[in-house]
Amino acid sequence: MKRFLWVVLIFSSIVLLLGSCSSLHRQGYRKVASENYQFHPVFGPDFDKTLYAAEITFGKNTFTSLAIIKQMPEYKSHRLVFFSEAGLQLMEMEFLDDGKVNVEYMSDFLNRKGIINKLSADFKLLFTNITTHSIYKTYTIPGDTGKFVLQMKGEKSASFYFSSNTKYPLTIRERGCYYGKTTILLSQYENNGPDEILFSHKMLKLKIALTKINYPEWN
């Protein structure tokens, strides 16, 4: 019986793996050499800091807050802080360039392992250091459409960065069909990162929308 369960588990994993790759194939993408395809990171080396309005929808509940993303070159990291409009801090995380995540502060009502893990994993996708070493595979649609996809190496799962005629990723997707898989849509890149960032999740009713606030003192 135990052996049967293992066989089912391995078989399902293979199906999921093949499924995610074949999905790219179905869209017309073909594997190519990586050298000619490079993305700018979502928050590039010239990025300093941005203030966002955040809207978090979990099930039927919607919360709003503010969020700051700041690059910390001296620590080789990015800081992410959420705080209420009236100033009360909700959470603070540090995303290091080497992939580590430090939770600096988590408000009591958010301090749950599942929430911390999901938020860490989601935002880590934004701060991935895209280098030739971190690219696992590159796909493009033949015929010079400008569309290409980079598949990044990951510790536990791979992620895909999609672009369409831009040097910036417009969609980021985690591989597989597991619970809570993340899709991020990014749009309107300016000098200071994307104006809009939308996180959504498969089989998990959690959406996070970040919209850049025009804050003249920083612009």
Partner: peptide, 15 residues
């Protein structure tokens, strides 16, 4: 006038 001060930011966020 509200000023939010975060240790890692040099500037305050004023609303």
């Amino acid at each position: 006038v509200q000023e939010k001060n975060l240790a890692f930011l040099y500037e305050k966020i004023t609303s």
